[in-house]
Computed example of a mutant assay.
Amino acid sequence: MRIVVIGGTGMIGSKVVTKLGERGHEAVPASPNTGVNTLTGEGLDAALAGAQVVIDVSNSPSFEDAAVLEFFETSTRNLLAAEAAAGVGHHVALSVVGARRQPGKGYFGAKAVQEELIEKSSIPFSIVRATQFFEFARGIADGATQDGTVRIAPVQFQPIAGEEVATAVSRVAEGTPLNGGLEVAGPERVLMDDFFRDALAAWNDPRQVVTDPEARYFGLHLDQDTLVPVEDTIRGEITYNDWLGK
């Protein structure tokens, strides 16, 4: 199949392109680096010509409330319109676990808007909702740091390796559209403050983790199950220690 991967030069997208290519598909990376811009529509029609499937793993360059909403709303509208014109038969989107359970402003709210647009379109679709990636753990710790301490809420957390997210997205893209979603998560569920306490120790990072029930996550106040799967779930096999190479 000819499968166009929007965001196909990024961290997850490049892995998806590689996996699809290894399975015999014509996987085409599409991003601003290849002349395709979903926010402006530049290059979309040419990129989607002849595509049976489109995978969207693109991400906003800014997580500021207005900017992230504009990115997902505008780029998704442009992408779906171009897919309809090209006769694409399956739209696959990577989203986040919890986006629809606790929508609001910020990143989670923008992803909820993206999902709603996909569901209302005429194109058969599949939405893969992933938990947080191991690759972003250090960035989360840095963003949660105040006065030299890392403030983390004691909520359920089940992060996953980006490699396993890419595998799940690739397999969904090869199959029949779900016209719904599935969730993917790592093999271990822990409290988020405990995860970061152990992670900082593994990094030999001297910062202390402070348990703070009011700590925000991308601007969101977290319930116990906001960040973990509650629906049909694909569980990965790579633990965080495996991923670190410990």
Rank of each mutant, 00 (worst) to 15 (best):
F157Q: 12
N78M: 13
G175F: 13
H25M: 01
E64L: 08
R235I: 01
I152P: 00
S126K: 00
A81Q: 11
G162Q: 05
R235M: 10
W243N: 08
E42Y: 06
N241D: 09
K15A: 10
L69K: 09
F195M: 06
G10D: 04
A30F: 11
A201F: 04
Q146I: 14
I238S: 01
L79R: 09
E115C: 04
L20I: 07
L200V: 09
V68K: 06
G24V: 12
F196V: 12
Q156S: 15
E26D: 11
I6D: 01
L222T: 05
G104L: 03
S60D: 06
A84P: 01
R77N: 07
G139N: 08
A49Q: 15
V190M: 15
L39A: 12
G139P: 00
T233K: 10
A168D: 00
F108N: 03
I127Q: 06
R2E: 02
G162D: 06
G41M: 07
A202W: 13
K105E: 14
V68H: 05
G175T: 12
R100S: 12
V54Q: 13
V16D: 06
G89L: 14
A85H: 09
T239H: 06
D194A: 11
D45R: 15
Q156T: 01
S14C: 03
D45Q: 13
Q208P: 00
E119D: 00
V169P: 00
T131C: 10
I123S: 03
R129L: 13
E135N: 09
Q224G: 00
R100L: 14
A84L: 10
L80P: 05
R197P: 00
L182W: 04
V4M: 07
S31F: 08
S62V: 06
P177S: 06
G35I: 11
V54M: 12
V172K: 09
A161Y: 03
W243G: 00
H25E: 10
S14M: 08
K105P: 04
Q114R: 14
G89I: 08
V228K: 03
D198T: 11
Q208S: 11
F72C: 06
V5H: 07
F63A: 09
A27Y: 05
N179G: 08
Q224H: 07
G24Y: 15
D194F: 02
E42T: 15
T167V: 14
T74G: 00
R216C: 04
V17H: 06
A202K: 14
P32F: 08
Q156V: 01
I3N: 06
V228Y: 04
G139I: 11
G109T: 12
L222S: 03
L244A: 12
G175N: 12
G43Y: 12
A185K: 05
V190P: 00
A130M: 07
S31G: 01
W243C: 02
V16M: 07
G104E: 06
A84F: 04
E73D: 08
S62N: 13
N59D: 04
T38I: 07
